[in-house]
Simulated assay, not measured.
Amino acid sequence: MLKAPAGANPIGMGTTAPRRYTTKQMGDACEMIVAAELTLAGIPALKVPDNWPGYDVIAQPFDRPAQRVSVKSRTFKRGAAYVGYNDYDQFDWLAIVLLPSEEFKARAIYVVPRQEAERLARRDKATSKTAAERYFRVDQVPDLFATWNANFHLTMPHW
């Protein structure tokens, strides 16, 4: 039987153990977590192949067309750490997965409609090389997107 490494927490709660995975492995795992949570919420979903343009997960609600989900993951950190996407990415939902750290003890997943992400995103000036980038400070994500925490039913607001 396999045992968890010393100091590791198998259910995703805070840990002080060194990270034992690459950034790519972390991203793939977070994409699979989002697909699994959507499926368990009654919206069948699957991770698309690596390097698929514009999104990472495709979900099929029973009452709507297929929904494209872009998954972004970061370990929680205060200060100048960002999570973002490019304006030209084609997706309907942005899933932000925040992984535990010393100060952020539990994993959190925010599944946000694109129009809300666009409304709240920081942007660089239109004349800059990074004008197509949209981003959020990692330590502001829990407050910015509190409404969208664990939104695995892909619920739209009543705007």
Score class of each variant (00 low, 15 high):
A8L: 11
D87Q: 15
G42V: 07
G54L: 11
V34W: 00
T16C: 09
Y88E: 06
K24D: 11
A80T: 15
G14R: 13
K3Q: 12
V57E: 01
D87M: 15
G79A: 12
T23F: 00
A36R: 05
D50C: 04
K3T: 12
D89G: 07
K105P: 08
Y85G: 01
R78H: 10
P100Y: 05
L99P: 07
I58E: 03
I43T: 03
A95D: 03
P5T: 09
P44D: 01
G12P: 10
G79R: 15
F91A: 06
W52S: 12
V71S: 01
P65M: 04
F76L: 07
K24E: 11
A29K: 04
A41H: 10
T39L: 02
S73D: 08
K24P: 02
E31T: 06
A17P: 10
Q60Y: 07
V57S: 00
P100W: 05
A4T: 11
A81L: 12
R78C: 06
D28W: 12
W93S: 02
V34R: 00
A35R: 00
F91C: 12
F62T: 07
Q60L: 08
I96Y: 03
A95Q: 02
V34K: 01
L40R: 07
E102V: 13
Q90P: 02
V69S: 00
E103K: 05
L99K: 15
D28R: 14
V71C: 04
N51Y: 08
P49R: 07
Q25W: 11
I96F: 09
A4C: 09
V83F: 03
Y55M: 07
F76Y: 15
P44I: 00
G79L: 13
A41F: 06
M32R: 14
R74S: 10
M13E: 14
L46A: 13
I11E: 13
T16E: 14
M26D: 04
P44C: 04
L38E: 01
A29W: 10
D92S: 13
T22D: 05
P5E: 10
N9D: 13
A6I: 09
I43P: 02
D87V: 04
E37P: 00
P18Y: 09
R19I: 08
A45W: 00
P61G: 04
V57D: 00
I11N: 13
Q25S: 14
V97K: 08
L98N: 03
V71M: 03
G42P: 05
S70A: 13
N86G: 04
D89P: 01
M13G: 10
D89M: 14
R74T: 08
T15G: 09
G54D: 11
F62W: 08
P49H: 05
I43E: 01
D56V: 05
A41V: 11
K72N: 02
G42D: 07
V34T: 05
I96R: 02
L94R: 02
V83Q: 03
D89E: 15
A36E: 11
L40H: 05
K3W: 06
A4P: 09
V83M: 09
G84V: 11
V71E: 00
R20Y: 02
T75H: 04
S70E: 13
A45K: 00
K24V: 11
F104R: 04
P65R: 02
Q90I: 15
L98K: 02
